[in-house]
């Protein structure tokens, strides 16, 4: 798959992005890493890319504690812009150190395909297998 990897609008952490790029590439995917602090417009633009660089999946990562809010903004902006690609998000999404089921629900309702809010990369790998196997799974909270 061609995967678009992105930080969230207010999040400047990059070790998560460096790690995820390697992780996804080692699984055989091609990764376009947009880097940190990605405004919604830049993300939407990259999703709309056509030709050989056209993404099949968007992976959003956030660890600064604003992830639920920024992720919601991002996925709403993408869906509003008519982006139909699968979008998943993960990392440390809140400031409390534990997943927040209500916030996770809001992300799913807004059009996220999966939420890995405990940062579980094993679960992401399973999700990727599923996608590669052809099926776009029902929206799920992978916990």
């Amino acid at each position: 798959m061609h995967i678009l990897l992105s930080g969230t609008a207010s999040d400047s952490h990059t070790w998560n992005l460096v790690y995820l790029q390697l992780f996804l590439e080692e699984l055989g995917h091609r990764v376009h890493n947009l880097g940190p602090c990605v405004p919604d417009g830049l993300l939407a633009g990259a999703c709309a890319a056509d030709g050989p660089g056209r993404p099949d999946l968007v992976v959003v990562s956030s660890v600064n504690g604003h992830g639920y809010r920024d992720g919601l903004g991002a996925v709403q902006a993408l869906r509003r812009a008519g982006v139909t690609l699968p979008v998943v998000i993960g990392g440390k999404l809140g400031v409390a150190g534990v997943p927040d089921p209500r916030q996770r629900r809001r992300l799913l309702d807004a059009g996220c395909d999966a939420v890995f809010d405990d940062g579980d990369t094993g679960a992401l790998r399973e999700y990727l297998d599923l996608l590669a196997g052809g099926g776009r799974a029902a929206r799920q909270a992978v916990a």
Binding site: A9, S10, S12, G65, H66, R69, V95
Partner: peptide
Amino acid sequence: IDSYTRVGDQDAARAALREGTPLN
């Protein structure tokens, strides 16, 4: 200082305070 203020997004900081979303 929180991340919204760091990146200059005062609108987001204000909205988060209004919603009661905890900031970092």
